[in-house]
C-alpha cells in the first residue's frame, strides 16, 4: 500500500500545484494545457488512491485518503510540493514561476513515464491497468513540457536565465525521485529508472542549452512522510472544503 501511495500522492500533489495556474497561465492555450495535465494526474491519483484503499482494507475511499490524512501520512516526493515559485508571492509574481513549473513538470513526466512503463509488468493487475492508461497520458505531458523546456532554455537571454535559476532551485530535490524501494513483482524500486531518467534529462538539458548544477547531497524524504514547510500550507488549501463540510460530495 505504501508503494501505491507514494505514486498516488506524488500525482495528487503535483496536480494540485499545476491546478494553481488555472486562470493565471501566460497564454490561454497554456492555461488549458496545465489544467488538462492536472486533470489527468488527478484521475491517476484517484485510481491509485482507490486501489491503495482497497489494499489497506480498512474501508477508506479515494476522498478519505486524498482529503482526510495528516501531513505525515502523505507519501509524495518533496519536489512536487514545492511552491510554483521560489520567490515570495508578494514580489509581483503571484507566487508563480512558469520556468520552475515547466521544468518540474518535465522532470516528473519523464519519471512517471519510465515508472509506468515498468508497472505494465506488475503482478498486481489493477496497478498494471492503471499504468497502461496513465502511460498514454504522461507521454503527452512529457512531450509538451519538454517542448517548453527547450523553447525557454534555448530562447532569449531572459528566458534562459530564468530557466537556469529554476533548475538550480529544483535540482537538489530530484534525488528523491530514485529513493523509494520497490515491492517484489509489484513495482520496481525507483532506483531502477534512475539511469534512464538521467540520460533523458541530460539530452533535454543539452537541447535546451541549460547546464546542470552540481549534484546535491540533499536527500528529501517526502516518500517516508517527512515533508517541507510548504506541505502544510498546501494541505490547508486542498483539504479545506472536506474539513469544513465533512463527507461532502459532488
Amino acid at each position: 500500500m505504501t508503494y501505491v501511495l507514494q505514486l498516488a500522492d506524488t500525482c495528487l500533489i503535483h496536480a494540485q500545484r499545476l491546478g494553481e495556474w488555472c486562470g493565471h497561465a501566460p497564454v490561454i492555450e497554456e492555461d488549458l494545457a496545465l489544467t488538462n495535465m492536472a486533470l489527468d494526474l488527478i484521475g491517476q491519483a484517484r485510481a491509485l488512491l482507490t486501489h491503495a484503499g482497497a489494499l489497506e482494507g480498512a474501508g477508506r475511499d479515494e476522498d478519505q485518503l486524498a482529503f482526510l490524512r495528516e501531513e505525515r501520512d502523505y507519501r509524495n516526493v518533496v519536489l512536487v510540493e514545492l511552491p510554483n515559485s521560489a520567490a515570495s508571492p508578494s514580489d509581483g509574481s503571484g507566487g508563480r514561476d512558469f520556468a520552475l513549473t515547466t521544468l518540474r513538470n518535465a522532470a516528473v513526466a519523464i519519471w512517471l513515464e519510465l515508472l509506468y512503463e515498468k508497472l505494465l509488468d506488475s503482478t498486481d493487475p489493477e496497478l498494471a491497468a492503471i499504468a497502461a492508461k496513465a502511460l498514454k497520458e504522461v507521454r503527452y505531458h512529457r512531450q509538451h513540457a519538454s517542448d517548453w523546456v527547450v523553447r525557454l532554455g534555448d530562447g532569449t537571454a531572459e528566458s534562459q536565465a530564468r530557466m537556469q535559476a529554476a533548475l538550480a532551485v529544483l535540482w537538489p530535490y530530484v534525488n528523491e525521485l530514485f529513493a523509494a524501494p520497490g515491492v517484489d513483482g509489484v513495482g520496481p524500486a525507483w532506483k531502477d529508472v534512475e539511469a534512464e531518467w538521467r540520460a533523458r534529462w541530460g539530452t533535454l538539458m543539452q537541447e535546451a542549452t541549460l547546464s546542470l548544477p552540481r549534484d546535491s547531497a540533499l536527500r528529501t524524504q517526502g516518500h517516508l512522510g517527512v515533508h517541507s514547510e510548504h506541505m502544510g500550507h498546501l494541505l490547508a488549501t486542498m483539504q479545506y472544503l472536506q474539513r469544513a463540510y465533512p463527507g461532502g460530495v459532488w
Binding site: 488549458l32 488538462n36 486533470l39 489527468d40 503527452y140 512531450q143 509538451h144
Partner: peptide, 13 residues
Amino acid sequence: QLSRFGSTPCKST
C-alpha cells in the same frame, strides 16, 4: 497546432 491540449482532455487546439 496551437496547443497539444484543448477544451476537453481528448482534444488539442
